[in-house]
Amino acid sequence: MIVGASLAGTRAAEALRRDGFDGAITIIGDESHQPYDRPPLSKQLLAGEWEQDRIALSDDDSLQELNADWRLGRRAAGLDVASRTVTLDDGSTVAADGILIATGARCRELPTNGLDGIYTLRGLDDCLAIRAELEASPQRVAVVGAGFIGAEVAATARERGLEVTVIEALPVPLGRVLGTEIGTVCADVHRDHGVDLRLGVGVDGFDGHGRVERVNLSDGTSVDADVVVVGIGVIPNTEWLEESGLELDNGVVCDETCLAAPGIAAAGDVARWPNPLFGEIMRVEHWDNAIAQGQHAALRLLASDDEAQPYSPVPWFWSDQYDRKIQLAGRARPDDEVRIITGSTEERRFAALYGRAGRLVGVLGFNRPRHVMKYRNLIEQGTSFEDAVEIAEQE
């Protein structure tokens, strides 16, 4: 049984069939939609460049080949670990020999005071609702949070010709991940395109008459807005597991093979596991990880303990904003040593290496995909920071 008709869950089911598993597969999903791809929700679909049929993860024939029992529009409400039985929100139960937890995460929210026009962006229905708002040509769009989702929504709205204000509590966007220097570059990209950035300030609340009209900020000022999109991070969907006995700590805690308990594995945004490549426990919310971990965790359910292999990827993701493709591989931190190895931050086209404790731990590229892929491989090989910089200097 796969709990979560998500990217991780769908790719897990495909991996099981490719590996020769011919038993029954039940897939439970809380949305009524067939599985779809999420990255276009803040980009092509939100922009109106694509329609929703283009974001399907698999065509009808491929879904049929999975020969799965789809339980869509049903939410998991509880898990009995001993019997490997999941209780659904309608009171029915489903038992299995192996269970993959891929329930993902949900958006953090702010109190809305019951006002319309305030949204989060996580699922297809969220995207279509925000898109309808943007197509109505609002006077002003406010985005709360300058993380990657917020930044992409802001870029999409600006490219529609709308006035956009981005409100971020940190001094620079993405400062907790990329550090101050690179975070400043991210801020400048938005300023280059006419975004009104309000940095180092939080949100105290929203005002309006039935519909949002203003965002009140913690410094006493306010921002006029007809539409607000809140992008302040996510929370793993683990509440349904609180009585299960599984270890929960910012996700479902697994061993290095993605196993959370005998016969129960986890993958995607909800999974937290020790990655031996980096020597740290991590939870990764990236598209690429959902695919790879979904496949790995599914095959872990078919493997014996002796056959099981650790899951030790180099996390990788990308973000499209205006004419910039931003890619990050590895595990960057704000206090890492940062070295620009090609291009310049002034031109917003460069590659930067991140080093920690003498080791190469990350590479960031602004329109530098070749460099990101090259140094991603070096991260996987455990290359020292000094050696990585030397390699860059020889190019």
Rank of each mutant, 00 (worst) to 15 (best):
A5M: 03
A5T: 00
S6D: 09
L7I: 12
E14M: 07
G23D: 05
A24H: 15
T26V: 14
I27T: 05
I27A: 01
E31M: 07
Y36G: 02
P40S: 08
S42W: 05
A47G: 15
A56S: 11
S58R: 14
D60M: 10
S62W: 07
L63D: 04
L66V: 01
N67E: 11
N67Q: 10
L72D: 04
G73N: 10
D80N: 15
V81W: 06
T85I: 06
D90G: 08
G98T: 05
A102T: 00
T103Y: 09
G104A: 04
G104Y: 00
G104K: 00
A105W: 04
A105Y: 05
C107L: 05
E109C: 00
G114F: 00
Y119M: 07
G123Q: 08
D125G: 03
D126K: 06
A136M: 13
A136W: 12
R140E: 00
R140S: 08
A142V: 13
V144F: 09
A151N: 11
A154V: 11
T165H: 10
P173A: 07
P173R: 02
R176W: 04
L178Y: 13
T180G: 03
A187C: 09
D196E: 14
D196R: 15
G202D: 15
G202N: 14
G202W: 14
G205P: 02
H209M: 07
V212E: 03
L217D: 06
A225E: 12
D226E: 11
V230G: 12
G231E: 09
I235W: 00
N237T: 12
G245M: 05
L246C: 13
V253Y: 01
V253S: 02
E256H: 12
L259M: 10
A265D: 06
R272V: 07
W273R: 08
W273S: 10
W273F: 15
N275M: 02
N275W: 01
P276D: 03
R283P: 02
V284S: 08
A297I: 06
L299W: 04
R300Y: 05
A303T: 03
S304K: 11
D305W: 05
D306C: 00
Y322E: 13
K325H: 14
I326K: 05
L328W: 11
R333K: 15
P334H: 09
D335K: 13
E337M: 09
V338Q: 12
I340F: 13
G343C: 14
T345N: 02
E346G: 11
R348V: 07
R349L: 07
R349E: 12
F350V: 10
F350P: 08
F350S: 08
G355P: 14
G362Q: 08
G362W: 01
R370M: 12
V372N: 12
R376L: 10
N377I: 09
S384M: 04
S384R: 09
F385V: 03
E386P: 02
I391P: 08
E393D: 15
Q394H: 10
